[in-house]
Design a protein around this nucleic acid. Sequence first.
DNA 1: ATACTGCTGACAAAAACTGGCAGCATGTGC
DNA 2: GCACATGCTGCCAGTTTTTGTCAGCAGTAT
Lengths: 230, 230
Amino acid sequence: MSRSERLIDLIQVLRRHRRPVSGRQLAEETGVSLRTLYRDIASLQAQGAEIEGEAGVGYVLRPGFLLPPMMFSEEEIEALVLGSRWVAKRGDDRLAAAAVDALAKIGSVLPGELKDKLDGSTLLVGPRQPIVDRIDLGLLRKAIRSEHKLALHYLDNDGRDSHRTVWPFALGFFEETRVLAAWCELRQDFRHFRTDRIRQADMLDNRYPRRRQALLKDWRVARGVDPAGV
Amino acid sequence: MSRSERLIDLIQVLRRHRRPVSGRQLAEETGVSLRTLYRDIASLQAQGAEIEGEAGVGYVLRPGFLLPPMMFSEEEIEALVLGSRWVAKRGDDRLAAAAVDALAKIGSVLPGELKDKLDGSTLLVGPRQPIVDRIDLGLLRKAIRSEHKLALHYLDNDGRDSHRTVWPFALGFFEETRVLAAWCELRQDFRHFRTDRIRQADMLDNRYPRRRQALLKDWRVARGVDPAGV
DNA sequence: ATACTGCTGACAAAAACTGGCAGCATGTGC
DNA sequence: GCACATGCTGCCAGTTTTTGTCAGCAGTAT
């Protein structure tokens, strides 16, 4: 296995472990000596991987994705840039910030001439009044990712307050609004919640008992939605 | 210079040349023997760079971007995926296809567990009836990129046919429609053309006499648009 | 204090890389 | 058809890089 392959492999090994892992163990799993492992870790850190080592504890990889070198066509880059611009305009604050950061990262590794091409890119996203949410959508995404229950304080269609515990599994971005899709414990059915009507959301400590993927699948079947779409 | 640095350098050298370049010349520019250059080319091709070599001619790099390894946070990846999904739904056919390809490329380099996360990703783009264009928007983008004039057959607001030569510099994606922004030779001013009203577009051989960036800048000033926005 | 761990330097062995050569295949120009 | 330019591969010796071992220092948890 070449060195560069091994480095990527090392990332994967690190990802598999949530708890800190000792260098000795990493060295065994990647089939290399401890000394070389330290050198590999240094290489990855130099390349921007956020690996943290602490004496007496071990290594942890800060959550994220290290993408290997890859080739994109001009149109594919245009698509990525246009899409990120859309998110930067229409996503919630945190996601919009992430889109801007991602664009900056891609831009920073392109040679000057091509960076200009992106900066002055000529694919534009039309304006629209921003959507205001009372809550942090980052919390909703976090609950979705970690499959945790949410306690919602929701303002009903008819203006009635309601409190429910739901199992959130998806977030839909429409033009006028955003919608949280979740299983509602109260109604024992799928329900959709406009994010601008969510007064408050608190993530509970316990996870819900089903897999997010399974919920998503059932929901699509229940709505008769093309599995590839929406 | 380390080997990996030299490989990236080689990509840049190839990009600088539009015409085919001989291996001998590339070897000189990268400061390496011809034999090693052939090996370098092979390495780049193995990494996915689309370099084409033809006996008796030389090497050409198919236009595109080779991104080095880079680290994205979980939210940044989510932003890229959501953005690409929006383009895949709302972009014109070619750009939508490019977005799908870009997503597939990113997906293919992620380890299984993370790929599932993307495939079953829980950030969704709301549906909407598709926009129909009579022309290929890829041609418009190509004209914009290469700063070539376009001959438009346009259906006016009042239903009148018109033929004009324009200098296209931007393409705006709105929810209901898409708009080509260009300098109109007929009116000697900026004009906007809804793409669904463009009956026919032909790219002319001659380039327009100004820089696309400059046009974009003037247009923004003329419209009083925030330079970072739209 | 002890055990565990991260981290660095030095140095020799192992592996990879490099350059030169030779040869073959394929394309261009005449 | 011919000469020429170019891409491409195998071989091999010299060079460079990578790797493993050893040794030592520093920080953390118990």
